[in-house]
Structures are given as structure tokens and as C-alpha cells.
């Protein structure tokens, strides 16, 4: 009797997203126009979104898919240190790690970026000279976002002047939750201008927005204000990136690209520590927004300890044995 199953590989599962060639961004000249745009968005059924995310989590990545996905995930890491106790040496050490995450295996890709406070941007810039690793800086009174616009813009200017390629700003959640949407929008626009050629990542702090409806609206608000990336979290509140939040933000990025022709990236941050979680998120990317987002250009993980687990799993895939965590440096 039959014992061996046959294998048929058919669809990849990847979402096929059709993006218009010419950009047509929504014109937002008044708060009413912004409200109308956000009101036109579909609601999110939280039960259905959680069920979809859970179903995607059952995908099983094996063999070459897993190897490719681990490398891809490594290349998407924004290696982050955002502590009061950060020092130049700590940042230099992190930069070395981002550049060559596993010196024993030169085929290991570099991380996407190093993410630090503005006062350490220059240190990182210098340490990463000659590498393709970008320097990202949080700004705008990170993590609370509670400062005047002038202070926020000065914070951004300092980071950009010191050589930041990317700026991670926080939105004013208080303003968003109290309905001052125009204020949130205007701040993003102003910061976007202050960034110059630097890319802007807008942190929504989804753990404080709480509902998926709010996440979808905040995502669209930030994209309409010309964010280059929308980002989940600061990592400084209890709830950070979750699979349903990632799903809703990727849906927003997909729908925005289809509607406007502008592709906005998505960055998940906070609490992602294991390779297994990271690969599950890549599946969500693949099946929600599709192949275009499977690149560090449009998708990032803000993390620190995640990198070592990705390296451990990568090494396990190559050597076939589980390795000690101490095989990789502790940065």
C-alpha cells in the first residue's frame, strides 16, 4: 500500500500587488480632507484579523526557503540600542556587529541599519564608514513625543546634521487619540521636510493606539503625510509589534501603494526576539503585501537580541546541530 506522498508545488502564496506607474498622492490641504480620507477606510474586524494572523503563523518554512528567509531577516534588522546608559564604545561595538554579524562566516549579510539616539549618530557614522549599513536615529522627543514642534525639529536637525540616513520619529499619540489629526499630520510633514534626503520612519506606537481601526487610520495618516516607513513601536511600552498589527499595517501599505503608486515600508519593533517570530512575520509580508516588501528597502525589524537568534538558526541550518548562544558576540 502507498506510503510515500507525492509533492506538488503550485502557487507561492505571495500576494500579487498591482502598483500604478505614476504616483497620485492624496491631496490633503485641510483637516476635513484628512478626516474624509480616514473615514473612507474600511473597519477592521479584530477577531477576523487575529484569525488571519494565526492562520499565517501555521506556514512551515523548510529547506532553502528557510535559509533564504533567515538571511533576508538578518538583512532587515535595524540593530538598536536606545538606553540611557548608551556610550560611544557601546555604539561602536554594535556597529561592528551590524556590519559583520558573524565574522566566522563572511557569507552572512549585514544588518540594514544601526539605530541610536541623535547624540550618538556621529559615532555610528564614523564606525560604519565604508559599509552599506545605514545609520538611523530616533528623534522628535523619543519615546513620548511630548515636546514642542520646535524642539522636535531641532532634534531631527541634529540627527540629520550628524549624518543620519534614516530618522525614526514618534507621533503625538495624545493628539491622535484626542482627535487632533491635523496636528499629527502637520508634524509629520514638518519633520519630513527637516529630514531632507534622510528617510523618515513614523512610529505609531500601536500599543497605545490599541484598536486595529486606529492602527489602520494612523497608518494612512502617516503615509499621506509622506512617511517613507510606518513603524509599530518605540519598544518602550508594554505592547509592541503583534501579528495582527503587522497584518493591518501591511494591508495599509499595500492598499496605499495600489491607490497612490507610492510604496511605503513597514518596520516592526519591540519584543521580537526569536528567529521563529521573525520568519512568521516574513510570511505575513509575503502573503499580505507581496514580494516587493520582501526587501530591507521596504521592511525592517527593529531589534537587538533577535539578530543572535537569527545567526544561531542560520548556523543550525548550515551545520545541522544546535549551537551555544555564546557562539555569537553578546551585542
Amino acid at each position: 500500500m502507498e506510503q510515500v506522498s507525492t509533492t506538488h508545488r503550485i502557487a507561492s502564496g505571495s500576494a500579487v500587488v498591482r502598483i500604478p506607474d505614476t504616483a497620485s498622492l492624496p491631496v490633503i490641504e485641510t483637516e476635513a480632507a484628512l478626516r474624509a480620507l480616514l473615514a473612507s477606510l474600511s473597519g477592521v474586524d479584530a477577531v477576523g484579523a487575529a484569525a488571519r494572523a494565526a492562520k499565517l503563523a501555521t506556514r512551515s518554512l523548510k529547506q532553502s526557503t528557510k535559509r533564504d528567509a533567515l538571511d533576508l531577516a538578518i538583512s532587515m534588522v535595524d540593530l538598536t540600542t536606545l538606553e540611557g546608559a548608551d556610550t560611544p564604545d557601546r555604539v561602536r561595538s554594535l556597529c561592528a556587529k551590524a556590519w559583520r554579524p558573524d565574522p566566522a562566516d563572511p557569507s552572512t549579510p549585514s544588518a540594514a541599519a544601526v539605530c541610536v539616539y541623535p547624540d550618538l549618530v556621529a559615532t555610528a557614522r564614523e564606525a560604519l564608514a565604508g559599509s552599506a549599513v545605514a545609520v538611523a536615529s530616533v528623534a522628535t522627543a523619543f519615546p513620548s513625543g511630548r515636546a514642542s514642534l520646535a524642539v522636535k525639529l531641532a532634534d531631527v536637525a541634529e540627527a540629520v546634521a550628524a549624518g543620519a540616513d534614516e530618522v525614526d520619529m514618534v507621533i503625538d499619540r495624545g493628539a491622535f487619540l484626542s482627535g487632533r489629526l491635523g496636528q499629527v499630520f502637520d508634524e509629520i510633514v514638518a519633520v519630513r521636510e527637516a529630514c531632507g534626503t534622510a528617510h523618515l520612519k513614523v512610529i505609531l506606537e500601536t500599543g497605545e493606539l490599541v484598536t486595529l481601526d486606529a492602527v489602520r487610520r494612523a497608518s494612512w495618516l502617516a503615509m499621506a503625510a509622506r512617511a517613507d516607513f510606518i513603524k509599530t513601536s518605540t519598544g518602550k511600552v508594554a505592547v509592541s509589534a503583534t501579528p495582527p498589527v503587522a497584518l493591518v499595517m501591511l494591508e495599509a501599505a499595500r492598499d496605499f501603494a495600489e491607490a497612490t503608486g507610492r510604496v511605503v515600508g513597514v518596520k516592526l519593533a519591540g519584543g521580537i526576539r526569536s528567529a521563529k517570530e521573525a520568519l512568521r512575520y516574513l510570511v505575513v509580508v509575503n502573503e499580505t503585501a507581496g514580494a516587493l516588501w520582501l526587501s530591507p528597502r521596504y521592511f525592517r525589524f527593529g531589534a537587538s537580541s533577535l539578530l543572535n537568534d537569527l545567526l544561531a538558526q542560520r548556523t543550525k541550518q548550515r551545520r545541522g546541530v544546535y549551537v551555544r548562544p555564546e557562539l555569537f558576540s553578546g551585542d
Binding site: K66, A291, S295
Partner: peptide, 11 residues
Amino acid sequence: SPLNALDYDPA
């Protein structure tokens, strides 16, 4: 994209 979609290997 420089990379293809995740083309899941048989599992």
C-alpha cells in the same frame, strides 16, 4: 524587488 517571493519549499 531584488528578491523573489518566499517560494515555500515542500513541508
